[in-house]
Amino acid sequence: MIASVAVRGERILENVEGGAMGPCNHEWSICNVRHGYFVEEGCFECGARLSFFSAEPVPPIDKYREGRHYWAYLGSFQTVKFDLKCRACAGIVDLNDVNGLMLSECTDRDCQVGALVHQQGPDSLVYVALCPNTSHPTGKCVSSEGIEALNQYFRAKLAPVGRKVTIVPCKLCNSIDKCRGTSIVDVGLTDIQ
């Protein structure tokens, strides 16, 4: 359920540096900024997709076999990754499992994300946090701690200017590979290298 995306600051966060932090009205700031490439690959046997972040100067484009999958390079885009650090308790939420953010333009009301987009007021937008394996074969997606911290960070940042955003994990999409949206990546900036 979408309602499970908690946005208040009282929850105990785990899996952060130093273990559980205890109750804290977190004051998140961005830390550990990494520049690199969002690389997308597809299996030409089953159509599965995966993506990863590469900090290499030139993104890898090799084809390779992994179990039953035959992965081939589909494309790459420049992007930025970061983590969130709380100024109050010094806890860090590792956002390594977030490969990017996508502004959702989903119109499918049978999709949880589409339904949420439909419910938004004029000053509110929904963003989807993209995990490395958007096919979700193991059910794993962006961590709930990461989603919660992202919502807290952006809501605290944008509240004073009268804007609202909701961040949801990509596993809530019926099909992220067919979903309508605008990914925040840079295309073609380094093509002339």
């Binding site: 992007t79 930025v80 502004l103 990546v185």
Partner: peptide
């Protein structure tokens, strides 16, 4: 001119100067 960089680097109440025109 790097759109993804805005999230980590631009601050609230900024004027952003860029040559990009994409929806992102």
């Amino acid at each position: 001119d790097m759109v993804s960089d805005l999230i980590a680097s631009a601050r609230t109440n900024s004027v952003v100067v860029t040559l990009q025109t994409h929806k992102s």
